[in-house]
Amino acid sequence: MQAEVASLENLSADLRLIRFKPLDKPQFPAASAGAHVVLALRAEQGTWRNPYSLTSRPGARHEYSIIVRRAGASRGGSAYIHDRLKKGQVVSLGGPNNLFWPATTARKHLMLAGGIGVTPFLSYLAAFAETGSAYELHLRCRGAEEAAFANLLFPWRHAHVHPTGRSSGFDAPKILSRQKLGTHLYLCGPDSFMAQMASAARSLGWPSSRIHQEFFGAPASGQPFRAVLARAGLTLHIGADQSLLDALEQAGIDAPCLCRGGACGQCKLPVLQGEPDHRDHFLTPQERARGDAIMTCVSRARSGELVLDI
């Protein structure tokens, strides 16, 4: 769907809040807590398509908002949003879809976020306020972003910001061990943060069915490789900072996809030859070992060439 940039607001040097209004329809579809949209931006180098959590209130239909953090070097979508995106500009939004929603049966919701990973929880908090659900949120972030995040979380009584490098009370084992039975844990942030928190929870006896993770962040870069598309009769060269999915789309191939983060399984393609470098969270260890399928949004090649059945 088409949307217009209604406003841009810098929350800090690296955090930007973008509001959209609907363009080709009177209203956006209602979205659930934790939903994301895929923002497509066209520039000379090609089209960037990145998923962003909606930070607007769930169910809101006249406005969507997202918060984008300027990423270090990587793929350029976030730099474009920070440096070039203008008010009034028309963009294309895919979705909304949701791969990370709160458990309806939870007695309490405990959210642990690393930095910009807090974004899906902004819509959680609004949903919990409406249903009166018990919640607790802890956000770990850089000192430079403390004020911006503290502002965002100001309305929520049980949301706490903990800047790194200061002894601030962010003691994950302590937080995790004082929760009552029936609490669900949600993690969102850098992979290392989520791995650390999940392992802390598991070692305290949290069942895996109570631990939920959002896989977040841009596809990792790596060595360039070739992809031979057996049915299309094409050979693509995938650059170091480009995903296989991006390359397929730029070649005009109608490749399936949804989350663009290796979580949903939609973009799975059969591999006929070559060794995939699996970086997704979807395939089982057995499926990885078979090496006959690849998630094109995040995974790459160990061999210099992959032959794909598309």
């Binding site: 659930s32 939903a35 169910g59 909304p96 929603w101 309806t104």
Partner: peptide, 17 residues
């Protein structure tokens, strides 16, 4: 009578049910 069910499945927007 032949009894046919036309079954439809919708993902719901707010609840994700």
């Amino acid at each position: 009578h032949l009894r046919v069910e036309l079954q439809t499945l919708f993902r719901l927007p707010r609840s994700n049910a």
